[in-house]
Simulated scan of single mutants.
Amino acid sequence: MNAKSTVSTVFGGIVALLGLLWIVQGLGIVQIDPILCVADCEPITGGSVQWTIVGVLALFVGVAIVRWGRDV
C-alpha cells in the first residue's frame, strides 16, 4: 500500500463513518448534543429525513473512496 492509497482509505473510512452517524441520527436512533456551535444550535430530535438521506449519500461516497483507494 502506498501513501496515496492509505490516505484515500483513511479519508473514505472517516466519510463513511460520518455518514453512518448521520443515518442513525436522522433515523432518531442516536441523539447527540451539538459540540461546537457558532449560532443557535439545537440537537436533532425525532429523526430527520434530510439527514438520513445525506448520511446515506456520505456512506456511499466514503465506501467508493475506500474502494478507489484500494485499487490505486
Results as ranks from 00 to 15, higher is better:
M1V: 14
M1R: 06
M1P: 07
N2C: 09
N2I: 09
N2L: 04
A3S: 14
K4M: 06
K4R: 10
K4W: 13
S5G: 15
S5Y: 00
T6E: 04
V7Q: 09
V7R: 13
T9D: 07
V10I: 15
V10D: 06
G12L: 03
G12C: 05
G12W: 11
V15L: 12
V15M: 08
A16N: 02
L17D: 06
L18E: 04
L18V: 10
G19Q: 13
I23K: 04
I23D: 03
I23S: 00
I23N: 02
I23Q: 05
V24S: 05
Q25E: 13
G26A: 01
G26F: 00
L27T: 01
G28Y: 00
G28T: 00
I29C: 02
I29N: 04
V30F: 05
Q31V: 15
Q31Y: 09
I32G: 01
I32S: 01
I32P: 00
L36K: 08
L36G: 11
C37V: 14
C37N: 10
V38N: 14
A39W: 06
D40S: 11
C41M: 10
E42D: 04
P43S: 10
P43W: 13
I44T: 03
I44A: 05
I44M: 12
G46Q: 05
G47W: 00
S48M: 07
V49N: 12
W51S: 04
I53N: 01
I53A: 07
L57F: 14
A58H: 10
A58G: 13
F60Y: 11
F60A: 15
F60P: 07
V61T: 10
V61F: 14
V61S: 01
G62S: 04
G62I: 09
V63Q: 10
A64R: 12
A64W: 11
I65F: 10
I65P: 02
I65M: 11
V66D: 04
R67C: 08
G69P: 08
R70Y: 02
R70P: 08
D71I: 06
V72D: 06
V72Q: 13
V72C: 07
